[in-house]
């Protein structure tokens, strides 16, 4: 029985990860992090995260790819941007976590039980179809892609929305939807 590793092993680190994150818009300043923790202190979700934003940044710099992509921090980030406006070094942790989400979705590096990538990809697929978001289509596909119990969880809200005339049953479409599809495909193929 081996004891849990208390130190990082060079062979398990991916020193490319930081450059990958830095190539995203807003990711390039990650090198200048001083680990002050203003981001974590400003984060409303930090208490529920396995690694706080400050730790995530340091783990990216250390090259802990598996741990970073497997974390829950990026999926709990609500993109409120408090960290971004408060960072004394001009780092944009919100954009850093967008990069981490994006890499995780691209590499299928996320725990299959985590529903967030399914939702985000379904959102993207729905916009690919109509050019705009259509909430009933989004929720229906999302429910079937993941845990079917989730549909039950959303049912009361859906019924309420329907009763209030807030469901928008007929999708609104973009006339030149091919342009929207081309843009989505351009970036989906790129990553």
């Amino acid at each position: 029985m081996s004891a849990p590793a208390e130190y990082l092993r060079e062979e398990e680190l991916d020193h490319n990860l930081i450059y990958e994150v830095a190539s995203f818009p807003g990711g390039h300043k990650i090198f200048s992090c001083q680990q002050c923790g203003s981001c974590s202190g400003s984060c409303d979700m930090a208490q529920d995260m396995d690694y706080t934003p400050r730790k995530m940044i340091e783990m990216i710099r250390a090259g802990m790819r598996k741990e970073v992509l497997g974390a829950n921090a990026q999926w709990l980030c609500t993109t409120c941007y408090y960290c971004t406006v408060r960072c004394p070094r001009g780092i944009e942790p919100t954009e850093v976590l967008y990069a981490v989400k994006s890499i995780g979705i691209r590499d299928r590096g996320v725990d299959p039980n985590n529903d967030s990538p399914k939702f985000y990809e379904t959102f993207c697929d729905t916009v690919h179809k109509f050019g705009r978001q259509h909430e009933p289509t989004l929720m229906a596909i999302y429910a079937f892609k993941g845990n079917p119990l989730r549909l039950m969880g959303f049912a009361p809200l859906g019924i309420g929305m329907l009763a209030k005339g807030k469901l928008g049953l007929a999708p609104s479409r973009v006339k030149n939807v091919d342009e929207v599809r081309k843009l989505i495909d351009r970036y989906r193929n790129k990553v």
Partner: peptide, 21 residues
């Protein structure tokens, strides 16, 4: 003929895609 702005879920798939939308 406006389209979806890209918003947070699409930024999560790819931030550049969202900006382009």
């Amino acid at each position: 003929d406006w389209n979806c702005c890209g918003t947070a879920p699409i930024s999560s798939v790819n931030p550049e895609m969202a900006v382009a939308l």
